[in-house]
Simulated scan of single mutants.
Amino acid sequence: MKKDDSGTDNGLGSSLPNFTPTQIIYYGVPGCGKSNKIREQLKNVPEKNKVRVVFHPEYTNAEFIGQILPVTNGGIRYEFTPGPFTQIIKRAYLNPNEQFYLVIEEINRGNAAAIFGDTFQLLDRLKAGETDSLGNDPANAAVNTFTEGWSQYFVQNDDVNAYIRGTENSIQIGNIRFDSNTAIRLPPNLSILATMNTSDQNVFTLDNAFQRRFDMELVRNEFDLTQPAVNVQYNAEIDDTGIKWGQFWGWINAKITATLKGLSSTEDKRLGVWFVSNMGGIIDDKVFAEKVLKFLWDDVFKFKRPQIFADGIDTLEKLINSFEKPSERKERFDIFKDKANLVAFVASPTL
């Protein structure tokens, strides 16, 4: 996010900073650290300056934008209840000298096109040197000139408009006079940050029209051992096995890539660095079994189980039991058919 406090006129008034809004989707395999990347980016941003929402298959446009709902207080009346989109846009409008962020987790777990609805067109922003004065009260067209960072297009929504104005007939936002006739646009001080799992378990796919309105950034699935927390995660022992999480992670991801080679979902099936988290430098055997082994059995090697798991392990129950309570003269990782390869990889991770 760029900010220029030089006082340059940006259409909001000469005394206001010049913001360049960000619209970006961080994508990658489950557990690679997408949400953490946003959390670190916004860790010094006050809570009032950000709104976080999670998309899911049942999430609707009415919930995202807002809807008329009954309110009981000595009787029943109906009021507009704003959704997260409307809440953050109002804060941004009323505080044009501050930066605001709408964070959308799992943007493709819901039907993003349907959830955004007609506000989808607001994602196109005016570029440097572009201006627009359409969609306003004609009497104010000379004043209400939208410049870089504002939405290029606009939508009419009386409920959102009234919510932004509150009890006032009109409000002044820098050089913008916002009244009942003013259309809704995204302001330049509002950014949208989103996360997206590339795994094929996601319910909806973002079409090209949606994706091209966002910058895309791959969050790489790798250990940055210069970071203390990541170093601890890599070296966390998987219970009492003597095998570190980072070692197993490297071995199993190499096996996933080799075993599923040629399938379109190969990369998405890999385990993320933070697929499971350590507690005090240890990854509990039950957590490992119920999350990692279950994922490998149900999703990754669903059609390759005989190639991967030891003879006699023909159900998930046997797999988990064999790991949590290995029989006499057996070790936990004997659940894998080629445990020897794992041991060799641990001894020489560059294999």
Rank of each mutant, 00 (worst) to 15 (best):
K294G: 08
K294A: 12
K294D: 14
F295S: 04
F295A: 01
F295T: 07
F295I: 02
F295C: 00
L296W: 08
L296Y: 04
L296D: 03
L296H: 07
L296P: 01
W297H: 11
W297L: 08
W297A: 06
W297K: 13
W297M: 05
W297S: 04
D298P: 00
D298H: 03
D298Y: 00
D298S: 10
D299C: 00
D299G: 01
D299N: 07
D299M: 00
D299T: 02
D299Q: 08
V300P: 06
V300L: 13
V300C: 06
V300S: 09
F301W: 12
F301E: 04
F301T: 10
F301S: 08
F301L: 14
K302D: 15
F303M: 10
K304S: 15
K304I: 06
K304H: 15
K304D: 15
R305N: 09
R305G: 03
R305E: 08
R305Q: 13
P306H: 14
P306F: 14
P306G: 12
P306C: 12
P306Q: 13
P306N: 13
Q307P: 07
Q307M: 10
Q307D: 14
I308M: 12
I308R: 12
I308D: 03
I308C: 11
I308T: 04
I308W: 11
I308A: 05
I308N: 08
F309S: 04
F309Y: 12
F309N: 07
A310C: 07
A310G: 09
D311L: 12
G312W: 13
G312M: 09
G312D: 14
G312S: 07
G312F: 12
I313Q: 09
I313S: 05
I313C: 07
D314K: 04
D314H: 11
D314P: 02
D314L: 05
D314G: 05
T315S: 14
T315E: 06
T315W: 09
L316Q: 13
L316V: 05
E317N: 06
E317S: 09
E317F: 03
K318T: 06
L319C: 07
L319T: 03
I320D: 00
I320F: 01
I320R: 06
I320P: 01
I320H: 01
I320Q: 12
I320M: 13
N321C: 01
N321V: 08
N321S: 09
N321F: 03
S322I: 00
S322H: 01
S322K: 02
S322Y: 01
F323N: 04
F323C: 06
F323D: 05
F323Y: 15
F323V: 06
E324N: 13
K325I: 02
K325Q: 06
K325T: 08
K325E: 07
P326A: 04
P326S: 04
P326L: 05
P326M: 03
S327V: 14
S327R: 15
S327Q: 14
E328C: 04
E328P: 02
E328L: 14
E328G: 08
R329F: 05
R329D: 11
R329E: 10
R329P: 00
K330V: 01
K330G: 00
K330W: 06
K330P: 00
K330L: 01
K330M: 11
E331L: 07
E331A: 09
R332I: 02
R332D: 02
R332C: 06
R332Y: 04
R332K: 13
